[in-house]
């Protein structure tokens, strides 16, 4: 050791030490990195496997062992993680009973299990992915005026011009959009759940989707400017109130007018 240390002030010594250090790092990296990647892949496949287990227990009785679909449930090949996140994350799936429409309810699976299911279904075939938080920044990327115009053209006929929801045929309905999470609305447009058509990213760009969400969030925060909104559903409740309360009051008054005083 002393022999080596004696040369520590040699002009080449610095370069030599640097060279040895670089080589060590290089070797160390090549030794460690593949094992890291292997760990990550392993973790991902573990999530997928976990999702598969949940799927086999909770979903396969209707959707088939390989998610190929059956007579009363569609195939899940190609629906993507976004669709699973929407259906399972809002409690619509698994179905409580076979009605005309799956309704929003308390989710059966927690966030982790939902993510696992989504990862499993996404691993089967390509489909729309779950949007991340950066893609959902509607405050920054949305334009409320454009959103209003797009909403009235594309959505208002089913969901009502104020996003209050509306009726479809045979007991199906378009749900109210008030108080719905940004991610849920985005995923619904992306995947077209149940009766709703798909609004793909090339027909309605992601930025336009965020504009519509910003418009809806604007309506949601809006306060009633006087009077009763009667649910903002238009002529149905207005007619109900006019006919039942208004006419009832008028009939009551006319009976009182005509009655003879004692």
């Amino acid at each position: 050791m002393k022999k080596i240390l004696r040369h520590r002030r040699h002009p080449i010594a610095h370069f030599l030490v640097l060279g040895i250090a670089l080589l060590a790092i290089g070797f160390g990296y090549t030794l460690l990195s593949p094992s890291n990647a292997a760990v990550a892949t392993n973790a991902r496949s573990q999530v997928v496997e976990e999702g598969r287990q949940i799927f086999l227990k909770g979903c396969s009785s209707c959707h088939g062992i390989n998610a190929e679909g059956a007579s009363d449930a569609p195939t899940l090949l190609g629906v993507g993680a976004a669709s699973v996140d929407f259906q399972v994350g809002t409690g619509r799936m698994p179905l409580a009973n076979t009605g005309v429409q799956a309704m929003r309810k308390k989710p059966v699976y927690n966030a982790e299990e939902t993510a696992a299911l989504a990862a499993y279904v996404a691993s089967l075939s390509t489909g729309p992915a779950i949007p991340n938080a950066a893609q959902l920044n509607y405050e920054r990327d949305g334009n409320i005026a454009e959103g209003g115009e797009l909403f009235r053209t594309n959505c208002a006929m089913c969901h009502n011009y104020a996003g209050q929801g509306g009726a479809l045929t045979q007991g199906k309905y378009a749900p109210s959009l008030m108080g719905v999470e940004v991610k849920t609305m985005y995923e619904a447009m992306l995947t077209g759940p149940q009766s709703m058509p798909v609004f793909g990213d090339r027909a309605i760009t992601p930025q336009q989707k965020l504009s519509m969400i910003k418009f809806l969030k604007g309506i949601e925060a809006e306060k009633g400017q006087g009077g009763f909104s009667l649910g903002k559903v238009g002529p149905v409740t207005e007619g109900l109130v006019a006919w039942v309360l208004g006419l009832g009051l008028l009939i009551g008054v006319s009976v009182w007018l005509g009655a003879k005083s004692k």
Binding site: E146, E149, L150, T153, N154, G192, P197, V198, F199, G200, R202, A203, Q208
Partner: peptide
């Protein structure tokens, strides 16, 4: 309302466009 021309590939199965 945005006046964008569409290719067939822009419309997915199950999609509508106005």
């Amino acid at each position: 309302p945005d006046g964008k021309p569409l290719k067939a590939s822009d419309i997915q199965v199950g999609a509508v466009a106005h």
